[in-house]
Nucleic acid binder design. Structure first.
Lengths: 146, 146
DNA sequence: TAACAGTGTATGCATATACACATATATATC
DNA sequence: GATATATATGTGTATATGCATACACTGTTA
């Protein structure tokens, strides 16, 4: 990475900078999670379901700040692999998703791997700096969603 | 977004937080760039080529911190649309990519749109805070790439 | 010069992402 | 009760992303 990158619109672009960080972080977490067979996105999805329990797709999309249709596709992969089940709800318009036993096991298997890489990053970054970064990212998120 | 999201591993995950911000920022910039027909990723790509000039795919991938093969696919779209040309270099192993006239025009057309949304974000966020955020993201990037 | 190691790029496959649109159901209004 | 409207979800299509691998060419070495 030369300093050519530091000049011009591209490097100063908030969006590009965020995507770049997301790419590199994603690669790091994917590598760490590899023994579990989960990707970082899938781990996050199972983790969210573990916390939220039975939930509709739309509400889960809101919680995770994801596009509803993206979530549908991502869930399809997890359903196919037996980690999530997608069942009808009272209101026949809605469907609720939830972790299966296999999904809970897989999450439990992946959790130590996640903890390790997360701890590595936080140690390198410093808890204080992560709090600050997290706050600033929330601000960006709030601005972008407005 | 309720505060359920604030509990548990998912919300605290550095990777998930970064991806979330990247998603929302991407949507915002995509919307702003829509009149030009470019997506934020394509705008960044053309912008980088405008700064860097003729360059090999591998080197461009390094500059943009992207996977080589991802860049190949993204470039194919831009070549198809006539904004980039991919030509043979001296060394027959290598190929160099560069903006076409149409690519320069398209970039010039998109630039004001980008400036507007970028300026909106920076105004809301504050220049100071963006500098800090940018620094922190660089730190994450450096940690993840190590 | 034939074999081989190195370099640069592209392709096969799979997942992630989101817009436009279609489908299905529930609720409100007349 | 029929029709319009609102709500919830899924599909078609397209781009973005990256690992594993194959291909193409260069340069070296036996």
């Amino acid at each position: 990475m030369t300093d050519l990158d530091a000049s011009g619109a591209t490097a100063k672009c908030v969006c590009f900078t965020l995507r770049k960080s997301a790419r590199t972080a994603g690669k790091l977490y994917d590598e760490a999670l590899k023994p579990s067979g989960l990707k970082n996105t899938q781990f996050s999805l199972l983790g969210a379901l573990n916390i939220l329990g039975e939930i509709t797709v739309g509400r889960l999309a809101d919680e995770m700040a994801m596009d509803r249709t993206t979530l549908t596709r991502n869930l399809q992969v997890m359903v196919r692999d037996g980690f999530v089940e997608n069942v009808a709800a009272d209101d026949a318009r809605r469907r609720v998703v939830r972790l299966t036993k296999a999904g809970q096991s897989k999450l439990a298997e992946a959790l130590p791997l996640w903890r390790r890489v997360q701890s590595q990053v936080l140690t390198s970054l410093g808890d204080e700096r992560w709090r600050r970064l997290s706050d600033d990212l929330s601000a960006v998120h709030a601005i972008a969603q407005r």
